[in-house]
Write a protein that binds this DNA or RNA. Structure first.
Length: 492
RNA sequence: CGGGGCGUGGCGCAGCCCGGUAGCGCACCUGCUUUGGGAGCAGGGAGUCGCGAGUUCAAAUCUCGCCGCCCCGACCA
């Protein structure tokens, strides 16, 4: 069984150990890419299910656009090319041919198959989608278009970490088209709220919803919003983003429509996305030195039954009782595995299921069978509760609700204890030379000042909270007037 | 791309300095004993020592070249 480095000893190794121990992902033969293993992919499937249902309730539909994009598309929108040019994978040839090098057969791109126009592998899909929207949109009656796609994208990053930053990652990207600026802005904020809801109610991870500063804005957006979560090492992680793209992409791809009065205007746009990075956030928000901790709403298995025995007779009795228990739990928890392996003793099984983050474990031994009960143990706090077999399903439903609420409450507590309001630059520096965290501070609004702070301390403005209170003050760095506080943190 | 580290059974490592039968822990297989918090014992299978040259009677070990990976930084969802 896997050993897990303690968080206090080496946070970054702990993170990798948890992923290995829970069998969520593995490194692939290609640098920076990862294999998402069944336990990890099941979490992603749960994320997809919940979000997809929510998107559809709001009127969005799914579609699929191609992986390959003409190279020229990226250059259409000036800021967009600036943002993505440095991390694009490029397809230049359409076939290989075998050659002999030093007596060995190998393959090289066939020079005769060089593409007329090279293709890029999408780093995001705005350009292909807006190229298609030009064909689909003529009239205000064609609007709004509310399309989402579940897809993979590739961004050639210098340094990667499992889930948090991989060369290829999975995400959903919503791309909407609207007749007015106000409608687009409303959509961007509506989807931001969906992400806030998803993080807090489903992932049990508290977030700050706000607007990004101009420096941190998406390449091609007029406004970028984000939800920002705090990890257990007090660093911030951007959980999802929603962009108001204004008319930038409509202009770049010449997408216009005629309104009811016959006037012609460019279409207003949004895009918004949440990626497999959220699984990294999930791990770093709740997990502990014993391994993965998952909120029940996203757990790939919500419960497991571990029968306990000393001899063959006890084995058949407790395994049988365990199977009956698992069947009774199914309506509440879906498939509940019964761990009847004879190769591991109970303690080994507990450790293994804990490392994998299954929220609730039921232990059932000979004494329990005799008393028609079992012992319910929750993963995150190891609380043990004897439960009559007849009432187990009900007890599990209640326990799963308690765990979900507990995890959010605990994460909120950690975030609060790592959040401060600061007024003086000395205090700011001192905070980030020591333990770090979220600092709510006044800022003058000048991007140059923001950049200087980041240069000096590696601390950035995570966002400008939407619900910040109106309060004037002096910029933490330069002292110039400020209209309100922004949230600073070191970020992943 | 800059700095640091590492490539040896599936995983983690020792052996290298000082060349001479490839080893340890975990995992795996078989058997017996175990089983209410990471089981014990016995036996067994599994490695062209990252790749390529060179030196040598002899290379995991020495020399040169190449490749790859991990960590820290700049970039980023």
């Amino acid at each position: 069984m896997a050993e897990i480095t303690r968080r206090a000893d080496d946070y970054s190794r702990w993170y990798q150990d948890v992923i290995q121990a829970a069998e969520l992902a593995d490194y692939s033969p290609v640098r920076g890419c990862m294999v998402i293993r069944p336990n990890g992919y099941a979490i992603w499937e749960n994320i997809q299910r919940v979000l997809d249902d929510r998107f559809k309730e709001l009127g969005h539909v799914n579609a699929y656009f191609p992986l390959l994009i003409p190279k020229s598309f990226l250059a259409r929108e000036a800021a967009h090319v600036e943002g993505f040019a440095k991390e694009c994978a490029i397809v230049t040839h359409s076939r290989l041919k075998t050659v002999l090098v030093d007596g060995k057969t190998t393959v090289v791109p066939d020079p005769e198959s060089r593409l007329e126009e090279e293709l890029i592998i999408r780093p995001t899909s705005e350009t292909v989608i807006w190229d298609m929207y030009r064909k689909w949109i003529q009239s205000y009656r064609d609007l709004p278009i509310l399309i989402n796609q579940w897809a993979n994208v590739v961004r050639w990053e210098m340094r990667t970490r499992l889930f948090l930053r991989t060369t290829e990652f999975l995400w959903q990207e919503g791309h909407t088209a609207h007749a007015t600026a106000a409608e687009a802005r409303e959509e961007a904020l509506r989807m931001l709220e969906v992400y806030r809801w998803f993080y807090e109610e489903v992932m049990a991870a508290p977030v700050i919803a706000g607007a990004k500063t101009a420096n941190e804005r998406f390449a091609g957006a007029v406004e970028t919003y984000s939800v920002e979560a705090m990890m257990q090492d007090r660093k911030a992680l951007q959980g999802a983003t929603s962009h108001d793209l204004g008319q930038n992409f409509a202009r770049a791809f010449d997408v216009t429509f005629q309104d009811a009065e016959g006037a012609r205007d460019f279409v207003w746009a949004t895009s918004w996305g949440l990626s497999t990075r959220s699984i990294g956030a999930l791990i770093m928000t709740h997990s502990d030195d014993n391994g993965l901790v998952l909120p029940p709403r996203l757990a790939w298995r919500k419960a497991v039954v571990v029968p306990i025995w000393k001899n063959d007779g006890e084995m058949s009795a407790t395994v049988e009782a365990g199977r009956a228990l698992a069947a009774a739990l199914k309506p509440v928890a879906g498939v509940v595995p019964v761990d009847d392996r004879d190769k591991l003793r109970p303690g080994g099984k507990y450790t293994e299921w804990e490392q994998r983050g299954v929220p609730v474990r039921f232990e059932i031994g000979p004494r329990d069978v005799a008393a028609a009960q079992c012992v319910m143990v929750s993963r995150h706090d190891r609380k043990k509760t004897p439960v009559p077999l007849a009432g187990a399903a009900r007890a599990l439903a209640d326990e799963l609700a308690r765990i979900q609420a507990d995890l959010l409450r605990l994460a909120q507590g950690r975030r609060e204890s790592a959040t401060v309001r600061l007024e003086r630059w000395d205090d700011f520096r001192a905070l980030y030379e020591a333990e770090g965290g979220f600092a709510w501070c006044h800022w003058c609004g000048d991007g140059a000042c923001e950049a200087r702070i980041q240069e000096e301390t590696k601390v950035s403005i995570r966002n400008i909270p939407l619900d910040r209170e109106a309060e004037t003050g002096a910029c933490i760095r330069c002292g110039r007037p400020s209209a309100g506080r922004v949230v600073f943190a070191q970020a992943y």
